[in-house]
Design a protein around this nucleic acid. Structure first.
Lengths: 210, 210
DNA sequence: CCATTCAGTGAACATGCGTACACCGAAACT
DNA sequence: AGTTTCGGTGTACGCATGTTCACTGAATGG
């Protein structure tokens, strides 16, 4: 029973993080208040300081935690599952993204919101992390047989486009009622396929006539 | 000189709106405070109530004002300027969007931020307005000769994709230093062309092989 | 069994918030 | 010239905020 004490502390810490994630969803990290978190957790405001140094430290912890979910999703998408065709890649990618967003909606909602609404430092941190995603995607695309025809700047434009599209996809998934998830996923697949068709036909058949 | 009084009032009102737009850029509409606005304007807090009924009314006015800029941009983009080729449409559209975003950066930054970070009612209002853009774009695309081959749901997917892409483009423009504007615009043109090439080749040459 | 650790408590603080009210003084109207 | 209108002022209120400090009491370790 040497772990009971630490366990209880960890449980309270988790409750604080979960409550903060919840409250943040309504009005943003900037207007998250220590006291509202404490009330939600069912603890006196000052108890908060047994777990975090300040309200800013809480924000930092939330960012870090959301990054874990983001990186987990990215590495899952990068596992080549059905690499034989672009359609296979599209289908598995959209499915994996959908699953991850559904598994941690609060984390992705947090990242999507604070990416544009956070304080400058939070915003910069999230943008940097998403830039990394974009860069990794660009190198993956470069390795694809169909990616050989694209110049480096065009590859960057494409990967940025796909990331923007997938961020929008996550937004749509989060905004949609669970019953509409399949329909939303189908629209996302269509969009991703259109983009890839555009990339495949780039500077070959499509470019001059378009 | 019968207008001096009203003029002065209008000038203060504008100063309040401008200050609010400025302060909002840093921490969002949700945490905009009446007192910080008053301080910025150089007026005592209670003077605020000579111009707006409440802090919420200010928020509403900001939303309406930003919508004016959004609608102006949309109707400018829709004026068919170089309709003869898709490339011409892409170039003129990106140029017009760039000009409008540069002309009213605060308005577009406001819309982009509050679309995901605003209170539910503000968020809903902005999403609705952007949905209208998406819908108008879909009908425009349907009228294009190249749009005839696409089914209605595919047209919706395409217009949503383009709107998402252009919102991302506006984000990039706002985040970029003015000196990098040309480079950012070039990337946006590339992305938009790729998407349109994908749409043109949809379910004809491109779809089966992709 | 006794001493210690420590998550949670409760009071207190300075500050910032939105809003109400009575008031002022100059511009505007009669 | 006299009166009214009204944008801006100053004070005051009740409430919420982040953080501090001394304290408690049960789980922990010797």
């Amino acid at each position: 029973m040497t772990e009971t004490r630490a366990e209880q502390k960890e449980r309270t810490r988790r409750a604080i993080l979960d409550a903060a994630l919840d409250l943040t969803a309504e009005s943003g990290l900037a207007s998250l208040s220590l006291r509202s978190v404490a009330k939600e957790v069912g603890v006196v405001p000052t108890a908060f300081y047994r777990h975090f140094d300040s309200i800013d430290a809480l924000g930092l912890a939330l960012v870090e935690e959301a990054f874990v979910s983001l990186r987990a999703m990215l590495s899952a998408v990068r596992q080549p599952e059905a690499i034989e065709s672009l359609v296979g890649i599209v289908d598995s990618s959209v499915r994996i993204v959908t699953e991850h967003v559904r598994a941690q909606p609060a984390h992705f909602a947090f990242l999507i919101r604070e990416r544009v609404a956070g304080t400058p430092d939070v915003r910069a941190a999230i943008r940097h992390e998403i830039d990394l995603c974009e860069h990794e995607l660009a190198t993956d695309l470069a390795r694809l047989p169909q990616g050989q025809a694209l110049s480096t700047p065009d590859l960057r434009a494409l990967s940025g486009l796909i990331v923007t599209l997938m961020v929008g996809a996550a937004e749509d998934l989060l905004a949609a009622a669970p019953s509409r998830e399949a329909a939303v996923a189908e629209v996302i697949r269509t969009r991703l396929r259109m983009v890839l068709i555009g990339a495949v036909n780039w500077r070959s058949a499509g470019a001059p006539t378009a």
